[in-house]
Amino acid sequence: MKVKMKGYWLIALMLLSISQFSDAATPEQEINHLIDFVAKSDAVFIRNGTEHSSQDAAEHLAMKYRKATRYAKTAEKFIENLASKSSWSGKPYKVRLSNGSLLNAKDWLSNELKEYRRNQHIHN
């Protein structure tokens, strides 16, 4: 009887572990969240010395993602390879927040990804 109970507990723990993994956001969901985050921000994006609205920046990132998905297998790779610098000039993208702070897009997006994952973990 003890062997059967241990078996049931083991199965229950395995199912719980599997359900935890299935609730995690996929890389595509995380990347789409980041693009949506950019679109809804009130930030000015500076790309190759030119300022762009948050909506224009989000459209640009979405276009880069569609054309170069192979370089963005994870949200981190999306940030590193597509969303943080110009593929044309290599210059880092900058973000000017509504409070006037100027940040590297890489840092800003990486922080948002951490926050998104933390919130996903809390809600799951």
Rank of each mutant, 00 (worst) to 15 (best):
2 K>P: 02
3 V>H: 07
3 V>L: 06
4 K>P: 00
5 M>R: 06
5 M>N: 02
7 G>E: 09
9 W>S: 00
9 W>L: 07
9 W>G: 01
10 L>R: 11
11 I>S: 07
11 I>W: 03
12 A>E: 01
12 A>T: 05
12 A>G: 03
14 M>N: 03
19 S>E: 04
19 S>N: 06
20 Q>L: 05
21 F>C: 02
22 S>K: 05
24 A>V: 04
24 A>M: 05
25 A>F: 03
26 T>S: 12
27 P>R: 01
27 P>K: 02
29 Q>W: 00
32 N>T: 00
34 L>R: 07
34 L>F: 02
35 I>S: 01
35 I>R: 01
36 D>F: 01
36 D>N: 06
36 D>P: 00
38 V>P: 01
39 A>C: 06
39 A>F: 04
41 S>C: 03
42 D>R: 15
43 A>D: 14
43 A>P: 08
44 V>H: 08
44 V>I: 14
45 F>T: 01
47 R>W: 03
52 H>E: 11
54 S>M: 04
63 M>G: 09
64 K>S: 05
64 K>T: 02
65 Y>E: 00
66 R>I: 02
67 K>S: 09
69 T>R: 10
70 R>F: 10
71 Y>I: 03
73 K>W: 03
74 T>F: 04
75 A>G: 12
76 E>W: 10
77 K>W: 11
78 F>G: 06
78 F>T: 04
78 F>N: 07
78 F>D: 08
80 E>Y: 15
80 E>L: 15
81 N>C: 12
84 S>P: 11
85 K>I: 07
85 K>P: 10
87 S>K: 14
92 P>A: 14
92 P>M: 12
96 R>W: 09
96 R>H: 10
100 G>V: 09
100 G>N: 12
100 G>P: 13
100 G>R: 11
104 N>P: 03
105 A>V: 10
106 K>L: 05
106 K>T: 04
106 K>P: 05
106 K>F: 06
107 D>R: 13
109 L>N: 11
110 S>R: 12
110 S>W: 04
114 K>T: 09
116 Y>H: 11
117 R>C: 02
118 R>T: 06
118 R>E: 09
124 N>E: 08
124 N>R: 09
124 N>S: 11
